[in-house]
Amino acid sequence: MKTPDDPLHKALADATFQAYRQAVIRLPPDVLRVIEKAAAAETNPVARGEFTNILKNIEIAERLGVPMCQDTGVPVIYLTIPPDVPLSQDFYDAVAEGVRRVTKEVPLRPNVVDPLTRHNTGDNTGAGMPAMHVKPGKTLAVTVLPKGAGAENMSRITMLLPSKKDLIEKFVVETVYLAGSRPCPPVIIGVGIGGTFDGAAALAKEALLEPVDTMTEYEQQILCAVNKLGIGPMGLGGDFTALAVKVKTAGCHTASLPVAVNIQCWANRHATVEAKR
């Protein structure tokens, strides 16, 4: 194992620290844009009040440099690696170190526990946590997507019959219906279609990283169906139960149609920082 003094280790730990800190304090511009757009279009007076609070909260968190929500989530990490850098175990150690440091210094709420003993590790790391997704890329960059429990707990997966692709929309709407007020709506919905059982879930989460201020016709159609539910911000009723739907697809078995829905609260927090080598 490399020492913490190794320049690459330090660069990755620092990039993780900065991306995590930025993610919990400041929303990406595309997410802020869809919230502002919905706030302006909402017609229900109670829901308008909720949007006012959400926008004020975003402004205060940024101004004071404090987390926008007390649930600072668990660390979901997407790492890209350029061709000249060989992947090693140390990358995982460096990212975990960045997570431990940011947890102590911001501070973040320690959320990570053993699933069975429920013992809290106190530093937001644990077995298989941070959740790491590594892909080749042009630069060495760390994306942190802190995932809160309220929304994550409402996510679902199904294996549909290949002949029933019309049921995809129903499955998404039903997922949001069953979630009700619990995921802190207005939500952002990541949908993974195809791949394998596990792959569909990974696609659904990756979809949350896509720009939410542009949607395909298919995504618009699902969003429209979801918003007919009328659950509204925080379950108080209103036009906006969801702000955006993002779909990602992958090739799948001719006899399969996996569909996963990953729910995200209005605070679709994520940030990417390039490691300075």
Binding site: P67, M68, D71, G150, C184, M234, G235
Partner: peptide, 28 residues
């Protein structure tokens, strides 16, 4: 946040109220 069940709705009758504060707005 999120409201309460029918039991609490009955218990509140004639005496108290439930207020909602916007979820996730910890800084505010």
């Amino acid at each position: 946040k999120g409201g309460m069940g029918a039991t609490v709705r009955k218990q509140l009758k004639g005496t108290a109220v439930y207020f909602a504060f916007t979820g996730g707005c910890a800084a505010l």
